[in-house]
């Protein structure tokens, strides 16, 4: 079956919306689930939980640092506590609190950052987060999750809730193509190989996974067999999947909606260096901040499309 036949990539819900719906389901099943918000409940979709369970919803106002520590207090008292805001705000404003009250203290708080990457579009760089994976991964003991679509988000949020440790989950603003069928099983730390390839492996996370599938389809038309791996858990990373891809294809492109200097790519490279060194290229944001535009315009301008990933793949293949 060709890549195009296998993946229809029909537009599904935004991952932030799937997060909000998963919270409601969790809240129904378990009265221990609580949610904190910092005046963005309509944007993060925690308003769905707030409506169902007002007594378990804590409005913190525009005060993300305070919210993180309140969440840590709730979590250390046995609650399954979620705190949510835009990724840029909860991580940047709450970083000290995440480091000391959560990571260092080993508190199983669930931190969700929505509106990640540059695909938020119009609001521009002050609200875009292109360093969140780096920040979250630098928190010792954190599990860092970055789902690619609605189904993945829904399942991973539920897994995150009952994971015995702190979590950061990265969600996006815009509707994204559906990759997984309902019922797909996920396991934290276990990457999903969506396409087996012979010549090159495209490794990605979040909304760039769908673009890597598009790139694989383009490359397939050119006679190149490109594999695609979805790293939905950035930390701990699936070393085996990466080592195998390096061994089997000898050529890897990592694509991400993040600074390439400190995101998924460098983490994959670490594993590749330690296992089966091979040709690698890194596709994402360079050392600059983006600008405003519609999400589509911004993604095209900053080369976050399948076509662009295919260009980088050709560059990697030429070096092989």
């Amino acid at each position: 079956m060709s890549v195009k036949e296998k993946f229809e990539l029909k537009l599904g819900a935004a991952t932030r919306e799937a997060f909000g719906k998963a919270l409601v389901e969790l809240g129904k099943a378990d009265s221990n689930v609580v949610v904190c918000d910092a005046d963005l409940s309509k944007s993060t979709f925690t308003h769905l939980f707030a409506k169902e369970f007002p007594e378990r919803f804590f409005s913190c106002g525009i005060a993300e640092a305070n919210m993180v520590s309140i969440g840590a207090g709730l979590a250390s008292s046995g609650k399954i506590a979620f705190v949510a805001s835009f990724s840029a705000f909860v991580l940047n404003k709450g970083f000290e609190q995440l480091r000391v009250n959560v990571a260092y203290s080993q508190i199983p708080l669930k931190v969700v950052g929505t509106h990640s990457g540059i695909s938020i579009g119009e609001d521009g760089p002050s609200q875009m987060s292109v360093e969140d994976l780096s920040l979250a991964c630098s928190l010792a003991g954190f599990t860092v999750i970055s789902p690619a679509d609605e189904v993945a988000t829904f399942e991973l949020v539920k897994l995150a809730a009952y994971h015995d440790g702190p979590i950061f989950l990265r969600a996006g603003r815009v509707k994204v193509p559906a990759i997984y069928a309902p019922g797909q099983k996920f396991e934290l730390g276990k990457a999903i190989t969506l396409i087996e390839g012979k010549d090159i492996t495209l490794i990605s996370t979040g909304l760039m996974v769908a673009e890597c599938i598009r790139a694989a389809a383009i490359l397939e038309d050119e006679g190149v067999s490109a594999g695609v791996i979805d790293i939905h858990t950035i930390k701990p990373i699936d070393r085996e999947a990466i080592a195998n891809a390096a061994k089997n294809t000898g050529c890897i492109v990592v694509a991400e909606e993040h600074f390439t200097s400190c995101g998924l790519g460098v983490r994959v490279a670490q594993v590749v260096c330690e296992t089966n060194p091979c040709v690698m290229e890194f596709h994402g944001m360079g050392d600059y901040y983006a600008e405003s535009g519609t999400p589509e315009e911004v993604l095209v301008h900053y080369k976050m499309t399948g076509k662009d990933v295919a260009v980088t793949a050709r560059k990697a293949l030429a070096r092989k």
Binding site: E122, D123, G124, P125, S126, Q127, S292, G293, H301
Partner: peptide, 22 residues
């Protein structure tokens, strides 16, 4: 708020020097 505009979604000194702060 459109791509390339000096009138970014939020105040941006890279585009309008009269801003004291982004």
């Amino acid at each position: 708020r459109s791509l390339g505009s000096i009138y970014q979604g939020h105040p941006d000194r890279r585009f309008i020097p009269a801003f004291e702060a982004s």
